[in-house]
Amino acid sequence: MERQSTTTARGQKVRGFLGKYGTLVGLAVVVVIFTILQPRVFLTFENIVNILNQIALVSIISAGLTVVMVMGEFDLSLGTMSSFAGCLSVGLSMQIGPSAGIAVGVLSGVAVGLTNGSVVVFLSVSAFIVTIAMSSVITGFTYWYTGGATIFGDIPEAFLNLARGQLIPGVANMVIIMLILLFLLWMLLEHTIIGRQMYAVGGNPVAARYSGINIKKCKMIGFLICSSCAAIGGILLASRIGAGHPTGGETFLLDSFTAVFLGAATLKGGRFHILGTLIGALLIGVVTNGLTIMNVQYYFQFIFSGLILILAISASGINRRVST
C-alpha cells in the first residue's frame, strides 16, 4: 500500500494490467487481425506448424538470454555467436563428420560463454562492453573461418536432419529440441536452487551475497548457458537452411531481446521467465508470419520488430521496480 508513486491509481492499474497480460492480449489481437485479414491461410494447421518452425530457433536463443537477464546482465554477442557456431558446425561436419561438427559448434558457445562470464565476473567489466567487444571478436573469427562467404556444398544428411528431420511425423526436430531445452531451462530457473539464487542475484545482489550465494558462480553459469543456447540456435539454423551463413544469426539479437522483454510482460509483471519468453517469441513469430502472408515488404518487418521491442520494454515495466 505504501509504494505508489505520483502516477495516478488508474494509470497504475493500466500499467499493472499491461505488465501482466500485455503480451497475451497482444498475441490475441494479432491472431484475430490476421485471421480476419487472411481467413483461408492464417489459422491453418500448416501455417501453425510453420510458425512453430519459425520461432524454434529464436525461442532457444531467447531462453538462454532469459537466464542472464534474470540476473540483471545481458549478452549482445549472441547474434554473432550463433552465426559463428552455424558456420563452424557446417564446415566441420563436412570435414570430420556431423557429430563432431555439432559438438565443436556447441563447445564454441561454451568457450565464449565462459570468456564473457569471466571478464564480467572477475574483471568487473560491464556486460554491455564485454559482449559488444566479444561480438566483434566472434565476427572476426567467423570471417576468418568462412573467408566471408557462405559455406555450403555436400553437407551430410545427418547434419541437415538435426533441424529438418521429423522424429515425430509432422513436427520438425528443431521444434522438439526447442521444447526440451525450454523445459530444462524452465526447470532450472523455477525449480532448482541455482535458479532461485539467480533470481535473488538479479533482485538484490547485496542481499544475495549476504545470504551466502556465490554470485560469481551464478553469473558464470548464466553466461555459459546463454552463449551455448546461441550456439545451438546457430547450428540448427545452419542445419535448417543447409548452409553456414556468416551473418545468418544477425536478426536473432533484436528478436531475442524483444522476446525476453515481451516475456517479462507476461503473467508475472516485470519478471523475466521462460514461459513468458516463449510466448514473446510466439508473438514475434505470429506477427512476422502474418506480415509475410500478407505480402508486406520485408523492410516493414524490421520497422515492426523495432517498434515491438520498444513496446515490450515499456509494457514489461522493467524500469519501475519496487522502490520504497
Binding site: 526447470m187 525449480h191 532448482t192 536452487i193 541455482i194 532461485r196 539464487q197 533470481y199 535473488a200 533482485g203 538484490n204 542481499a207 544475495a208 549476504y210 545470504s211 551466502g212 550465494i213 516485470g270 519478471r271 521496480r321 519496487v322
Partner: peptide, 29 residues
C-alpha cells in the same frame, strides 16, 4: 537483508535452499 520483489517464501528460504529439496541429490526444490 531482503530481495524486496521476491516473495516472503523465497526470501525466507534463500540461505538454506538445500534444505528444501524434493529428493536428495537432485537439485529440485
Amino acid at each position: 537483508g531482503l530481495v524486496v520483489d521476491m516473495t516472503v517464501r523465497e526470501n525466507m528460504t534463500l540461505p538454506n535452499l538445500h534444505k528444501f529439496l524434493m529428493f536428495k541429490g537432485l537439485g529440485l526444490l
